[in-house]
Design a protein around this nucleic acid. Structure first.
Lengths: 216, 216
DNA sequence: GTGAAACATGAGTCAACATTCAAGTTAGAA
DNA sequence: TTCTAACTTGAATGTTGACTCATGTTTCAC
């Protein structure tokens, strides 16, 4: 399961304000342990079942130490959601950059996404649950993906790599496909390889449902 | 917002066992009021924020009456999820049955789905939240859809209406597209008409991203 | 070496419900 | 009409868990 770097605690954007930044080495270690523990606790038990006690016990810290670094239960959760966004994009971007065109990139991106989800089931659950715990963080998470998809589709469109179309709607269609295939084949069931799923879905993304015209 | 028929209380499948069935007219009315109130309360506040007190107040009933009809908070929630599955499938099936082929059916189905979500935002939220409140109910919900999609794709494949492919993966890809387009354009934003979204996504479902070959 | 700022600790506070139950009221079959 | 099962009521119970705080310990800049 993915290590949650202490870096998360140092972010200072709109969705995860003011986690106190530790000033000593000891503090940084404690913060890192707490973040990792929080990811595990939320991932395994879900936001509401998770308890601060559970987090501090996993971290080997005292209950009160949690509040040295976080203002509330919800705040760590938000930090984790935001962290997950960065991790996911980094992972996928690294694998997709060598793709020769957008259509191949989508297949590779899906394969990478499924692999990522399998390697971070706990963190992925946190992202999905954000819809009900911190809806704005959830929307932000997908807004960034939407933006990236639209840009990618627009560029590919100009290059003639893809069919013209409604990029915003196609962006969300692609996001939905990725998320549900990630849930079904990444979280729920490992029996198909990521490559197999990506190949099957890649054909669909490339050619849709319309049959190839008859050879004559 | 959708009326929740008292019928829900009479179901007796695995996911919603033993809600007590009322024996008098008064009882049936109270049960119906409670179900409707529960849908509104869960839909507006989410499962954990929702309270039984909130439900009975909306229903104009006493707190204790809730437990005359339901065993627990979770049980009403499950009943509502299951109910939503039936409503959704009925709504879509009615609109899709006149479609001449599978590809058109998918476009019409998406349009109907977006309309349905818009008309039942509260109930739809309940379904999505089920992933974290009653995971088995959530899986069951989508298992039924998967089954239907696979059958539809298999039949269409035999008829040569669609390209051969991996029907299970395509089923989940389609489900994901529908769910996310429903969330984005049904729940979050009404500015595009359902037909516009369905037209744009329909083109993608039909032809994918590959550009049309150059006319010569 | 030292003292102030950082950090750690965990018992205690407090509010929020889900659920129970004993005491009533009403419906409707006979 | 009568009587019992069905239904209603809301105060009381009990648990849970986020968050506070006063006290103690460690770090590290000087």
């Amino acid at each position: 399961m993915g290590r949650v770097e202490a870096k998360v605690g140092a972010m200072h954007n709109a969705t995860s304000p003011s986690n106190k930044v530790p000033r000593t080495e000891r503090g940084r270690r404690t913060l890192a342990k707490l973040l990792e523990a929080a990811a595990a606790e939320f991932g395994e038990r879900g936001y509401h079942e998770a308890s601060i006690t559970g987090i501090t016990q996993r971290a080997g810290a005292a209950l009160g130490s949690f509040y040295t670094y976080f203002d509330s239960k919800e705040q760590v959760f938000r930090a984790l959601v935001s962290h997950m966004g960065h991790l996911t994009r980094k992972w996928i971007a690294e694998r997709v950059e060598s793709a020769p065109n957008r259509i191949v990139a989508e297949r590779i991106g899906l394969e990478a996404f499924i692999e990522f989800v399998r390697a971070h089931k706990d963190l992925y659950r946190i992202v999905m649950e954000a819809q009900f715990v911190a809806e704005d963080a959830y929307r932000d998470y997908y807004a960034v993906f939407e933006e990236a998809y639209r840009r990618n589709l627009a560029v590919a469109g100009e290059r003639g790599e893809i069919r013209p179309g409604h990029d915003e709607v196609r962006a969300w269609a692609l996001i939905g496909m990725n998320v549900f295939l990630g849930l079904r084949y990444g979280v729920w069931d490992d029996s198909l390889s990521a490559a197999e799923v990506a190949a099957a879905a890649g054909d669909f993304m490339a050619f849709g449902l319309t049959p190839a015209p008859k050879a004559r």
